[in-house]
């Protein structure tokens, strides 16, 4: 299964959900396939899940989708006990696990290439609906449930280590501009002011 196949399935399903992404090729790939104003692609390892938790807490009526990677999640495993205890029903977490640090260009293996089972770690932290998928048909089935149902889902998607994202032209929007786009979208769709500084 390729990550891009998963994204091609997910992208048309995005309407008013908020999508929080981490670093790696997935930021480039997702931003290219789904240039949605509700994207907040933070371009940093180990932060997307925490941001998603914060957003899901303060906007309980909005579906929040987090796109993580194995390397990024391994860097921030401390999120899982908190997530298990909060059990946020409006949050869906997708971990695209290619078992390597692909950014290294030599595809150094991550811990999930060895004995680490991220869905097992999540379940042991109290995240009941944590599962691993390896085939695109299983992904589609589980992803639809994650988007439709009002229950915390944690989906580890075993994907091939691909390099297709390197052929995609990178956006020149910097992170402040990206954040403003996201926040203005939220202000418009939530009908409230978020940034409170005044001129």
């Amino acid at each position: 299964m390729k990550r891009s196949e998963c994204f091609e399935f997910l992208a048309p399903l995005i309407t008013d959900q908020l999508v929080i992404g981490s670093l790696s090729g997935q930021r480039v790939e997702w931003g290219h396939l789904c240039p949605h104003e509700g994207n907040l692609l933070v371009a940093s390892m180990g932060a997307a899940l925490g941001i998603g938790v914060g957003l899901a807490l303060v906007l309980p009526h909005r579906k929040v989708i987090v796109l993580e990677s194995d390397g990024s999640l391994l860097l921030s495993l401390y999120n899982l006990p908190t997530l298990g205890n909060l059990s946020l029903s409006n949050l869906a977490v997708f971990v695209f696990d290619n078992e390597v640090y692909s950014g290294t260009r030599i595809s150094e293996p991550s811990a999930t290439a060895g004995k680490t089972d991220l869905a097992g770690v999540a379940r042991s932290c109290g995240i009941e609906q944590a599962t691993t998928v390896r085939e695109i048909d299983s992904f589609k089935r589980e992803a639809e449930k994650a988007l439709e149902e009002n229950v915390l889902r944690f989906l580890v998607c075993k994907v091939a280590a691909t390099t297709g994202h390197r052929q995609i032209e990178r956006p020149n929007e910097d992170l402040w501009e990206h954040k403003y786009r996201f926040v203005r979208y939220l202000e418009r769709t939530e009908g409230k002011k978020i940034f409170l500084g005044r001129g």
Partner: peptide
């Protein structure tokens, strides 16, 4: 990171 999400969520 959680506070960042809460802050950007209003």
């Amino acid at each position: 990171s959680i506070a960042a999400g809460a802050s950007l969520g209003g």
